[in-house]
Amino acid sequence: MPIKEELYFVPPAKLRIDRVSKSFATRSGTLQALDQISLKINEGDFICLVGPSGCGKSTLLNIIAGLEKPDSGETLMDGKPVTGPGRERMVMFQEPALFPWLDVLKNVLFGLKLKPNLNNKERREVAQFYLRLVGLEEFAHANIHELSGGMKQRAALARCLAPNPRVLLMDEPFAALDALTREQLYGDIQRIWAERKKTIVFVTHNVREAACLGNRVVLFSPHPGRVREEFRIDLPHPRDINSVELAKYASRITRALKGYENSPGTEMAE
């Protein structure tokens, strides 16, 4: 039964970022977005990249995704260099980026259609499985504009999970949502991470969010983008964003961030 195989957990991948640098040409000169970044990400890590805007954390995510090429250095997935985008590394963006001409189910099917060794019936089953996982099974045939912001991000998450990637790359996926919806999604993403065993790289500028989700929180500083410090969050999942222990971690991280910022960082505050 290939469908069982398909839904079987694939082992999470490990990533190695090896001295990655990237600069952009801007009107006022070159901007060093990333400067010799090295980072080891283990199988099944939930790693949050935190830093003010302009620190290159999204650029790094795009490089891991294969959507952008570094000027120097390389990214390795299980020892193999990343040369372009691939199904084993799915990206979830800040905007849901769902296709408005397709209904929810067909959006989830989009990535599956490109996956070989499945027939259409199996693809539908897989898509429905993931819609159930994110709690949208009743909205399979809804149009995108009929969904709320939170539901759109759930649908986007289902679309990312459907090809069964080994790494999930998330670029501030909850930044545009209201606080209540966001808290629900924190619960969901922790549950899905535990159930589906993915390596997750999560970019955010929200310190509490990072402390709530990650087992590792990596701090970046801007101009040029560098890794400054790493925190291990040794709290059991699932975590409640409002818990006191979590607040302690968050304030330590915030202090560290403020320490190496030249200008007072207003952006750090939730």
Partner: peptide, 28 residues
């Protein structure tokens, strides 16, 4: 929106598929 094509690429869509299944329907 360029993000449509990016999303399609991460899902494994190549040029032709992206044009026929994403860019053209999006411009409908």
């Amino acid at each position: 929106p360029p993000i449509f094509a990016r999303a399609a690429r991460t899902m494994g869509a190549k040029q032709f598929y992206t044009w026929t299944r994403v860019i053209l329907p999006a411009s409908a």
